[in-house]
Every structure is written in C-alpha cells, then in structure tokens.
Nucleic acid binder design. Sequence first.
DNA 1: TAAAAACCTTGTAGCCACTTCAAAGTAAAA
DNA 2: TTTTACTTTGAAGTGGCTACAAGGTTTTTA
Lengths: 144, 144
Amino acid sequence: MRIGELATATGVETETIRYYERLGLMPAPSRQANGYRTYGPLHQERLAFIRHCRDLDMPLADIQALFQLLSHPEANGHAVEQLIDTQLARVQERLESLQTLATRLRQLRNSCSGEHPHQECGILQELRAAAQGADCVCHGTVPS
Amino acid sequence: MRIGELATATGVETETIRYYERLGLMPAPSRQANGYRTYGPLHQERLAFIRHCRDLDMPLADIQALFQLLSHPEANGHAVEQLIDTQLARVQERLESLQTLATRLRQLRNSCSGEHPHQECGILQELRAAAQGADCVCHGTVPS
DNA sequence: TAAAAACCTTGTAGCCACTTCAAAGTAAAA
DNA sequence: TTTTACTTTGAAGTGGCTACAAGGTTTTTA
C-alpha cells in the first residue's frame, strides 16, 4: 500500500500522513527500492485511530499521550479518562461562548435591514457605539 | 497615552496592538522624541471597535473590509449585512459540529468508569474498534 | 513507443491570530 | 543609585495542517 492508497483509504491527505510521521505520531513505514513508503493494515488502523481522535478535536499532543498510555498497559485508565474529561471541558466551554456569539450576531443582523447608505446601517452604528464603551444590542452590559 | 496605557485601557496586549499596526488595522500613531508611540482617544476607539469585532470571532481580514466600507459612506449597507451573515453561518456550522462532538465525548466518557488496567478501558476499546472501521458509541454508523 | 498524466520524494514556506523571545534603550520607583 | 518597569525592533514559535517547488517514478493513453 503506497501513501496515496492509504490516503484514499482513510480520507487523510498524503501531506498530512507525512506530517504525522514527522511528528512521530505515525511510525516510519518501510520503503520500496525506489524510496516510496509502503504501508500495511496496521498503519491504516493507526491512522484511523488518530483521525478518530481528531474528529473528537483532540490535540495531537493528547493523541501522543494516548499512545504513551497504550504502550504501558499496566497503568490504570484514569489518565485516559482525564484526557477525555479535559477535552469535554474544552468543547463545552467553546460551545457556550459560541452560543452567546450566535445570539449576538443574530441581534446585530436584525438591527440592520433593507437598503440604506451605511451611515445609517444599524450594524455599524452598534459597532461604533460599542467601541465607545456603550452597551449595545450584541453585547450588553458586561457583568463584572 | 503610551502603548502600555492603551493596552490596560482596552485589555489588548501591547504586542497585539503593534501587530494590528503592522497589518494596517491600526493607523501608525505619532511618536515621542524617544520613539515611543503616542495614542489618543480615537486610537482607543478604533482598537475597541476591532476588539468588538474579534469578540464576534470576525477574521481580521473581514474587519479590514469593514473599515473599507466605512471609508466609502456612499455605498449601501448590503456588504456589511453579508459580512455578518457569513460570520453567522460560520458560527452556526461550528456550533452544530461542536454539539455533536460534545455528545460523542460524553458517551465515550460513560463507556469508561472506575479503576481498571486500561486494556479493559472502554474508551480505548471504543477507539480501537472505531479505528478498525466498526461503529462505536461515539460515532455510530455514518449515513452516506 | 512515446508522450502525458498521475504518482512519489524532500524541503520549505504559508495560513491565522497571536505569543514569545532577544537585545537593546528609556523612564519611573525604591 | 540601583532596580524595576516600560519601550523599541525584529525574528521565531504555536497548532494543524496546506501548498508549492523541483525533481524522480510509474501508469495510462494516444
């Protein structure tokens, strides 16, 4: 299996595969006489594992850590749980801030409708007002 | 007003302010005899405006575009509305994928509880199974 | 069979929005 | 006076890729 085949098999671009190899996330594969990389099913599994973690938005460093844990089977699973918990916390934090953001943007959007010279554009008025420290439809008073 | 004062006044780090200046987002300020940057209230307002946009997760390029629009008051506001709409679409897309992600992570977390050597760790079993192409608690069958 | 397309190799630079560092000069506080 | 805090510039680092350049190899097509 050459790198391009692995790429189409997993949906990961060849550059990304080589990038993972450079980082040490993927083991260096054996080479053909012409220097081409050769991969087997184990490589494919490993790459799928990495991608699965990335789908969960796990940083590559955390995936590295996961591989470390995998290579020390005697340790108990708390470290793995913690990794997931940290990840979940990150996602939830981001989720909340994005929800606030979406609300703000919708309010902002509503303050500007129809055609008009943009001196009168509600959006710009809001942004200007907010820049001067005033409360605005999309931010409001920040509770200290 | 020196750069540090502007920084504390706006909550933007000095490096970031200089970075914005390099990008042309902030106009080059006047200088004291010793070369120190000097800012006035207009700079502060502009910086607050930029930060307000960044709070809305707007890319710096879009903020640049917004300034362009501001400097052509004869144009109508549709461009501004479109900018906001694009931004809102981005945020909502990200929001949906993060919500799916949070669910997946919670399910994954639940599949691993209590102390155990991590060969038996549900999380790792899931990830390994998923890497082999199986459905898993956190992803399930992908509908084509 | 020859030419063209598609693949592979390496290394390097670019993306975004910063952040950090280095090395030096200036100003304010103890 | 010494120390601390501030300022200057420029360069490099962050993460997770992505793109490109300049070559070599293999496969397909005419």
